[in-house]
Write a protein that binds this DNA or RNA. Structure first.
Lengths: 225, 225
DNA sequence: CTTGACACAGAACGTATGTTCGTGTATGAT
DNA sequence: ATCATACACGAACATACGTTCTGTGTCAAG
């Protein structure tokens, strides 16, 4: 693990190690002067000098100017998990219940999935994420299977090309589709290119329940017979 | 997770939540003034006042006097992350390279995904897991898309009904299929029930490269046009 | 030899940050 | 009414901290 990276002098390595150790042991990063003392560098400017290099190499991130405001991008193994509550099932004929974004969610008896933050695509805000468990085969056109878990992000509207969960009250239907707003209608495009889109006129009510961020499928031993 | 603890006022709770969030998102704790601003407390002394109480309650630890020197003792609860190396691409016409189970893989220049152990189905042995990035649309019959990440478990043989990655040398083909050993042939069944199975005679060579454990799809904004 | 890049040190400087203190306002007990 | 306690505000203060500037020694290229 601790490997001499190309282009890193001993001091780079020592600084990196020390930051690592401090973050692990104390829970917060050291100050420049502490780094200096620990690595035998007598001047704060020299530490700054190295931190700048490490930062340019992408080995640390820092919001300079603030105290102890540095972090190790690749590590942070400690709290890199986020817990996403599974709010309920999603199925063709079922509306989705999304208890509107309580800033503090109460229900901790709920099911949840733990996801490493690093696998969440963008910098999604954690509080806006929730998960649904797919029931039935109705989402196969979205390449989503029975039993899959879809991770959603709260959203009431969508941009063209985003995959969203849509509730069509007039049809009593929930679907996951790519969303396109066009001339005088909405086009809901299945992920499977061989399938036909659904056209929804703008008169018809259409509720966007969230954007699909991620799909997780646990493959059990049993498959098709 | 976020639970109103007995004896904690809303401000205590808010402060706790904010520290938590900042540590997770930034990698280092906030300053007193930042806490104040985020929780609607206008005076630094009031924040100090609460921090002292939280500290006495053992809900935070802090080396006061130093900047941002506070930490959440209970954090690092689920260190349950495992890192799964992404060994390479998987595509219809490509053999899979699986460098046989080095007990410690050296190459850390490789890509990897972090997964919470809790979402890994069985008690798979961590070292037996690896991941592949799907290239192309050739796996759509397995409900697996271009760009998906499949998490595999090393295996040279499979039981009936398991989904496996198979290499057919005579056909120069890699596929993900449900595996069934039958009378005098193998039946490779697509996950999509509307599609026809591939029948492979027992004379034909067939290499099982691993079992599919999980599929992860990150849905980006862009979809089908 | 000169030049410039690099690694390093020390001092000066501005500010971000935590603490202390004086003050004010409720509330409840005596 | 008086006092204690919990909660809250803002100003003053000391200092820990990051930045910047100046200077020194080394080493390779010109």
């Amino acid at each position: 693990m601790v490997r001499t990276r190309k282009g890193l002098t001993e001091r780079h390595q020592k600084i990196l190690d020390y930051i690592n150790k401090r973050v692990r042991e104390q829970g917060y990063p050291p100050s420049i002067r502490e780094i200096g003392k620990a690595t035998g560098i007598s001047s704060t400017s020299v530490v700054t000098y190295y931190l700048k290099q490490l930062s340019e190499l992408g080995l640390i991130e820092r919001d300079a100017r603030y105290s102890r405001a540095l972090r190790l991008p690749n590590s942070a193994p400690a709290q890199d998990l986020i817990r996403i509550p599974i709010l309920g099932p999603i199925a063709a004929g079922l509306p989705i219940l999304v208890p509107d974004a309580g800033p503090t969610y109460v229900g901790d008896e709920l099911d949840a999935v733990d996801i490493a933050r690093s696998v969440i695509p963008a910098r999604e805000k954690e509080d806006d994420l929730y998960a649904l468990r797919v029931q039935g085969d109705s989402m196969i056109d979205a390449m989503i299977n029975d039993g899959d878990i879809v991770i959603m992000k709260r959203a009431a509207k969508a941009n063209n090309g985003e995959m969203v969960a849509i509730w069509l009250p007039h049809r009593d239907e929930t679907t996951l589709k790519y969303f396109f707003k066009e001339e005088d209608h909405y086009r809901l495009q299945p992920a499977n290119p061989t399938m036909q889109p659904i056209i929804v006129s703008k008169d018809e009510p259409l509720e966007i329940k969230g954007k699909v961020v991620m799909v997780i499928r646990k493959v059990e031993q049993a498959g098709v017979k």
